[in-house]
Simulated scan of single mutants.
Amino acid sequence: MGERAMLHRLWDKWSSIYVAPDGGKALCGAAVVNLASDRPIRFPGLVLEQEGMELKSADVRPIIAGVRDYNLQNECIVLDSCKYFVTATYENMYCARREDAPTLPWGGAIIGRTPAYLVISKYQGTYGAAAKALAATEVLMEQITPRSS
């Protein structure tokens, strides 16, 4: 099975469990973006899978640049016309809160980096929702990270 087909199969299974645009699950939106130019999918920044979001390659280029330069915490991230600011960083994950959170329902985004992909997920809610979103994003990241032999 090819890499793209395997990613699509994993995405379908994962998104059916964790993503519901109406907010009924851990995430209200998610996307997988290609990072590596040496993979069979040779276009860095190409949005490979998404649900509950309307991202284009041009939307994710600043995010990719911030992740590669290790300065995403200094940038404003725009996802679906909402601004997010990184509030916490971990080894390969960035947690961001929505700028307009006091006027709209609370929410945020999780951005996770694997060697080949960027996983972007959005959630609605406060701390409990953020923890669930972080866990759901980690599940997909583990599934799509190549295993070393």
Rank of each mutant, 00 (worst) to 15 (best):
S57G: 14
Y123I: 00
G128Q: 12
A65R: 12
I41R: 00
P105R: 13
V67K: 04
E49R: 14
N74G: 04
R61A: 15
T114F: 06
I111S: 00
A135I: 07
M53K: 05
P146E: 15
A31H: 05
I17H: 13
P44R: 04
S149L: 14
G66N: 08
E75K: 01
I41C: 05
R68I: 02
D38C: 06
S148M: 14
D100Y: 02
G107D: 09
G107L: 13
V33M: 05
S121P: 02
V139E: 02
G128C: 09
Y123A: 02
M6G: 05
D69G: 02
N74I: 09
R97F: 06
A116S: 10
P105A: 13
T145P: 05
S15G: 01
R61W: 10
Y127F: 14
P21S: 08
A58S: 13
A26G: 01
V78D: 09
I111T: 11
L79F: 09
R9T: 14
D80R: 09
I64Q: 13
G23M: 11
P44A: 13
Y117Q: 02
I64V: 12
R147L: 12
V78M: 07
V47G: 02
I120R: 00
K83Y: 09
C95D: 01
A65V: 11
C95V: 15
K25T: 06
M141E: 00
V19G: 03
L46T: 06
E51N: 04
L55F: 11
L134C: 03
P40Q: 13
G125Q: 06
R9D: 15
E51L: 11
P102F: 10
Y90W: 10
V86Q: 10
V119F: 00
E3Y: 10
Y117I: 03
Y117R: 03
A58R: 13
D100V: 09
T145S: 14
K13W: 14
E75A: 02
V33W: 07
D38M: 08
